[in-house]
């Protein structure tokens, strides 16, 4: 197994955090992992992105030219990264903020109204977790429980009170894919 995923969005949408959460969970699941952020001025106010690789074998490069999957939180990210996804790859798309259609027809596209769901949960800042939950459900590379158990390792201590909320957000995204009818 070699999963390469890019997560992208506005600064502040929490793409770095879900990337770290996925990487940490992979490590707990005894897989090889790497997390590589974009850095520098592009992070200030603009788009942020990170590349996470989860693999059963040693990871040669933390970067990828053609990811298997992308999680896009906003339109600029969709425009930039969807063309790079491998054929038959996966796009998890934040349909709350992106109206524009994806032209490619070879891809699996999961539309997640992440902001709306997060708002229902009472905090739009967990939209990122909704997206990650949906991704986990689709890819099944790591058990959702491991991801939940890794929240405490990744979130700064001052946010540990929000762990239950983050778990709920992960569940909502996860169930959206697993049990679409119930959502």
């Amino acid at each position: 197994m070699n999963e390469e995923v890019i997560m992208a969005g506005f600064g502040g949408q929490g793409v770095m955090s879900i990337g770290q959460l996925l990487a940490y969970s992979g490590m707990k699941a005894k897989l090889e992992v790497s997390w590589m952020p974009s850095y520098g001025p592009e992070m200030r106010g603009g788009t942020a992105n990170c590349t996470v690789i989860v693999a059963s074998e040693k990871i040669p490069s933390p970067l990828t030219t053609h990811p298997n999957s992308v999680i896009v939180m906003n339109l600029p990210s969709q425009t930039k990264f969807v063309p790079k996804v491998k054929e038959q790859g996966l796009v998890v798309k934040n349909s709350s903020l992106i109206d524009e259609k994806i032209e490619r027809d070879d891809l699996t596209i999961i539309e997640v109204p992440a902001n709306e769901i997060a708002e229902e949960l009472g905090n739009t800042r967990v939209a990122n977790m909704v997206m990650l939950g949906a991704y986990i459900a689709e890819k099944e590379i790591i058990d959702l429980d491991i991801v939940k158990n890794s929240l405490a390792n990744v979130l700064p201590e001052r946010h540990h009170g929000l762990i239950p909320l983050n778990e709920k957000a992960l569940d909502r995204g996860y169930n959206l894919v697993k049990e679409p009818a119930s959502v």
């Binding site: 990487a23 992992v33 790497s34 997390w35 590589m36 850095y39 933390p62 970067l63």
Partner: peptide, 9 residues
């Protein structure tokens, strides 16, 4: 920069 910024176990 890449090695410095990346996270690995």
């Amino acid at each position: 920069g890449m090695l410095g910024q990346m996270m690995e176990p």
